[in-house]
Design a protein around this nucleic acid. Structure first.
Length: 369
DNA sequence: AAATCGGGGGG
DNA sequence: CCCCCAGATTT
């Protein structure tokens, strides 16, 4: 055990690390947040980049910093507006926590904390993000260990253990720490080492394709030397298949307006608006499901008309097909039984509200027909 | 330690 | 169409 770690520690030379960073300097992709030193913008970019690819993040980042140019602007904005800018980007707890942390920072005097330890205390900032901001924005010698860096180190050190095991994770982290110390001794900047390793993982040492001939670490990579297929590392347990649900949803119309409801602040799609509805139960038709959901969630009676859309969508732990029906409101005043808010909205105003992706598809069908 | 929490891209 | 990706928080 000790030997495996020691081996990788002793083998990373200043020259190799310099080669890595200079590879990065000449191969790095252009990104909007790489043109700024503003810690606020670097923070926003790192939150958006959690679980999300660079190409997806770019338009969201540009819109976000234009709408909320600094911590104060973000802190004083209503959450609904923050969610609207985040609409479609997923993992909405990130937006809620970013907003919450902005308020925390303003309460602390308006300046972002500069150490990874202090950053870690803010909502939505965990081990990865605190290290990323501290190293990139403030030059702290703290290593990041995101999925890219884990993969690069697992391959370079030929770590065969399952990535989900704590001991394996600790080993990779220990190696990353030693590399960081070696980089500091070689007078390389901590942020540059971290960005180099992440960029290498994203563009060369990729999950299902390793472009080893382009890799600045190819001479020291143990997996490349000893294995047929480096992409088998890091090892991961097989994922189990996810359940599928049919959802019945209603476009309830009254006096030219459509009824939308707001989801609870916590949990799945928290704080977003949607067309009311819910899971179809066994032995129930979609039409019966819609009538039942309108009764249970809102205490209204509807007449279910034609189906206007059937949208498939995959979440992290299950899949849905959203079946959407035109409905006529025929009785009952709306009561907030299982929703936090409800509004009758003109079709042209629907786009002012933040909807989940599946509902956005329905909305597009609705307004383009 | 395991489950929750989106949406995009690739084969 | 299915499979893969992966950081923070909650349980």
């Amino acid at each position: 055990m000790l030997r495996a770690v020691s081996h990788s520690l002793l083998n990373i030379s200043a020259a190799t690390l310099r080669g890595l960073v200079s590879w990065f300097e000449s191969n790095k992709r252009e990104m909007p947040w790489r043109n700024t030193r503003d810690p606020y913008r670097i923070w926003v970019s790192e939150i958006l980049l959690q679980q999300t690819q660079v190409a997806t993040v770019e338009p969201y980042y540009n819109r976000f910093v234009k709408t909320f140019p600094n911590v104060e602007a973000l802190a004083k904005a209503p959450l609904d507006k923050v969610l609207k800018v985040w609409e479609g980007c997923g993992y909405y707890a990130r937006a809620r926590n970013l907003h919450k942390a902005a308020k925390q920072i303003v309460a602390m005097g308006g300046k972002l904390p500069q150490s990874s330890h202090e950053l870690r205390k803010l909502a939505g900032i965990g081990p990865y993000t605190s290290a990323a901001i501290a190293s990139i924005a403030f030059g702290e010698a703290v290593q990041v260990l995101d999925g890219n860096v884990e993969r690069v180190i697992a391959r370079v050190t030929c770590e065969e253990g399952f990535i989900t095991e704590k001991s394996v994770h600790s080993k990779l982290k220990a190696t990353a720490e030693v590399w960081m110390q070696a980089a500091v001794k070689a007078e390389l900047s901590p942020g540059a080492l971290n960005e180099s390793l992440m960029e290498l993982g994203a563009t060369v040492c990729k999950p299902r394709e390793a472009l080893c001939s382009d890799c600045p670490l190819k001479k020291v990579c143990v997996a490349r030397k000893t294995r047929d297929d480096v992409t088998e590392l890091p090892r991961k347990p097989v994922m189990q298949t996810t359940p599928h649900y049919d959802i019945g949803a209603a476009i309830v119309r009254k006096n030219g307006r459509i009824l939308i409801t707001k989801r609870p602040e916590k949990g799945l799609l928290g704080g977003l608006w949607e067309f009311p509805g819910g899971k179809k139960e066994r032995g129930e038709t979609l039409e019966e499901c819609v009538r039942r959901e309108m009764r249970e969630e809102l205490d209204i009676q509807v007449e279910v008309g034609t189906q206007i859309a059937s949208v498939k969508h995959a979440y992290t732990h299950f899949k849905i097909t959203l079946h959407c029906f035109e409905c006529k409101h025929v009785g009952g005043e709306v009561k907030l039984l299982h929703v936090t808010d409800a509004k009758w909205v003109r079709p042209s105003e629907l786009r002012n509200y933040a909807f989940p992706k599946a509902d956005r598809v329905v909305l597009d069908i609705l307004t383009n027909s």
